[in-house]
Design a protein around this nucleic acid. Structure first.
Lengths: 197, 197
DNA sequence: CGCAATTGGGACCATTCGGTTCCAAACTGG
DNA sequence: CCAGTTTGGAACCGAATGGTCCCAATTGCG
């Protein structure tokens, strides 16, 4: 019917996600977003409503891409047994730091700290993602040499502990802890959970 | 020599700390700070230099008060054995939520996420506080029925795991997790670390 | 081809931001 | 009691904020 959009909306969203991921909500100015999205003010406010809804869309995108990747690893039997998959899941936080000094941390975790307290929609999305991760960890534990024979309750508790540890790791990463410190936390955590024997 | 200050500087700092604690750095406007500190713009810029240095001073105050309190509990033999003190240390995160729906989380942890990545001074303070907490946890473990006889390395690892779990807990609290979820994480963590037998 | 629609982008908006300046009022030391 | 200094507070600052509007350019449809 009319002139088609010139930019890829998901590509633009990826740019926005990276800005929010790095700078947080308040720290990201409209100008920052426009630069990263490579579009003009007018186009932005036609494709989205306002800054907040871009943020929400960026969170959704993070869910669809990054969180989904983590969940996939945790559920992928071809990767190894459950313990291996959990280790890999945590390892990802360390690898991001080691690879490229990536100090963005986890967007989910950042959002939990800087927006969830004052935005119910953000909180709901954050909860959803956390629950999804926790379920995936639990699923991995159920397919793990050591944990498979534990009572269900202990597995559930361990899934909770591991998900919680993941959050802590991402906070450490964002605050600038070196990769080796993260490695220490990871091995301490998996050993503590009895996943290394 | 001259007219004395009319406001208590530490009292004002307490107000500023609460604002930053709740809203984060970028989320706290000068006006928010002035309201909470009950002083005028001019007075503020005479007592401090700028917004950033108020934030740094607020972080220091958090260290001197809240962190110190946590460290004191962890080191206070009259509270109970090490395991008990660690449990109380984690329990504090849950209690804050249960008591008054306090969703501020931990200022240290918030700062780690929202300022440490872009401010080296904040990062240094954050690291310092984390290390202090970790040492205190380690000290508690050394005076704990179960952990005292562990090899030193395992105790160090456990201290790391517990400090990391604390960060995760505070993220959960700030994101709005109910107190009972926090309780589940706490008991799962202490049990996982072998502190409950 | 030409109409209708929708784009991208610049101009523009009020508001708020962090920060400075100025000055009468208030206090202290001599 | 007065000289000298520092206060608190209002007025003011330019810059940047998030958001709107308008219009030429571009496209699909009839």
């Amino acid at each position: 019917m009319a002139r088609p959009r010139e930019f890829d909306i998901d590509e633009a969203l990826e740019g926005a996600m990276n800005v929010f991921w790095t700078k947080g909500y308040e720290g990201a100015s409209l100008q920052d977003l426009l630069d990263a999205m490579n579009i003009a003010r007018g186009s932005l406010y036609k494709a989205f409503q306002d800054k907040r809804s871009i943020y929400l869309a960026a969170l959704d995108r993070y869910d669809r891409t990054e969180i989904q990747r983590a969940v996939d690893v945790l559920r992928d039997r071809s990767v190894g047994d459950g313990a291996m998959r959990v280790r890999l899941f945590l390892e990802d936080a360390r690898a991001a730091v080691a690879r490229r000094h990536d100090r963005r941390g986890c967007f989910l975790c950042n959002a939990a700290v800087d927006r969830a307290p004052m935005d119910a929609d953000v909180q709901a999305k954050v909860f959803g993602m956390m629950k999804r991760m926790e379920s995936a960890v639990a699923a991995a534990l159920a397919e793990c040499m050591q944990a498979a024979q534990w009572p269900a309750k202990r597995r559930a508790q361990t899934a909770l502990t591991l998900t919680n540890a993941y959050l802590g790791l991402r906070v450490l990463a964002r605050s600038g802890s070196p990769a080796k410190d993260l490695a220490a936390v990871i091995s301490a955590t998996t050993q503590g959970c009895g996943l290394d024997e």
